[in-house]
Design a protein around this nucleic acid. Structure first.
Lengths: 201, 201
DNA sequence: TTGACAGGTGACCGCTCGATCACTATAATA
DNA sequence: TATTATAGTGATCGAGCGGTCACCTGTCAA
């Protein structure tokens, strides 16, 4: 239980900070949730603030490893239906993965207090998804699946509503099923509107 | 300076809570910002929590008075360009009005801690704008300005990206001009895509 | 003129906060 | 086996927290 404790502390901090915020979380509560006593924590971290900074380091590194580089880009779908499938798969992951949920909630809560949290929040909530879908849509246009248009604008128009529904799940988890259905409905609406095949009005 | 002080306390609480959160704000700091001493506050409020609840009461009442009833609905635009104009006017208000900004930030920060804040956040960030634009788009379809489609879906597809850019302004105010430009660009993209006049691909 | 009262003050209370420290148990190493 | 480093403990610290109280002052109605 050597390096392990440090990781457990960070996990507990992510959990508590994401629910009660940094200021609303105290060290006693945090360590007690691990069956430790408050003073033990200072064997692993210098201060509460160092926990916060380490947590941010970890979140930034995780984001970079998971979404940061072009290699992680999902493949360009071969059909409009493939876009829906891919979207639902990604949504499912991001909406049900506990760690990702907590990360998002933490960034939501602390984005106005910490510069790095602010920057990471913008990536998580706005530019990340957009930048991921821009080349996908460009590729789909090349394949003749989508009408020619500005792929970045399409990516924004596509990801922002989905992002809003992800936020809804974070806020009101009991609406998760409803939100998932809305994501799929929106995705189908999108391919109907932007799909290359001509639809009458 | 009788009833006045109570209002000033609430205004200061909105300001501090929206920046540092409820747990991150202390009474001394709050009263000091009004030139008062801590104990004076308890002539007007029973506790810190009562300030919070009164603030929420006020925000809920304000939202209801401003956006809650159908009478406040903006008129259905007479042209596609009118939709852009109306959108920019609304965006300008909501992005520059200090009280609205602080309300949004407060709800963002505290939505996971308080049931009423959670509900109001969903209104502010998701359903409110959508419900406002649904009848507008229905009306524009009736006028032959927009292609026939599900007006609620269009309202969602229209307002969610705009809402995302409003959030960006809250998070990174230095990007406000850029975000306003993006809102306009998105609005024009939207009328291009959904406008009843036929556009080639 | 007086008495009640609203509103503001400073001293103070008990508590909880983050943090420190001397100490101990354990386990690996020399 | 003796030594040393690691990790956990409980007592304790000073500071800051939300909240209380006796007191003061100006206003206004009786």
């Amino acid at each position: 239980m050597a390096k392990d404790t440090r990781e457990r502390i960070l996990a507990a901090a992510l959990d508590l900070f994401s629910r009660n915020g940094y200021a609303g979380t105290n060290i006693r509560e945090l360590t007690a949730s691990l069956g430790l006593v408050k003073s033990s924590l200072y064997k692993h971290f210098e201060s509460k603030e160092e926990i916060w900074n380490s947590l941010l380091d970890e979140m930034i590194a995780y984001y970079g490893a998971r979404f940061g580089s072009p290699e992680q880009l999902p493949p360009v779908p071969d059909s409009l239906e493939g876009l829906v499938t891919m979207t639902m798969k990604m949504a499912e992951f991001t909406i049900y993965d506990e760690k990702v949920i907590k990360t998002r909630k933490l960034l939501t809560i602390e984005q106005f207090r910490d510069e790095r949290a602010r920057a990471l929040a913008t990536k998580h909530f706005l530019t990340g998804l957009k930048d991921m879908f821009t080349p996908i849509f460009a590729g789909m246009m090349d394949k003749g699946l989508l009408r020619r248009d500005d792929p970045a604008m399409l990516a924004f128009a596509y990801t922002a509503p989905i992002s809003a529904l992800i936020h809804l799940c974070d806020r009101e988890p009991e609406k998760t099923n409803e939100a998932m259905a809305q994501i799929e409905a929106f995705s189908r609406h999108f391919i109907k509107v932007y799909g290359a095949e001509c639809h009458g009005n």
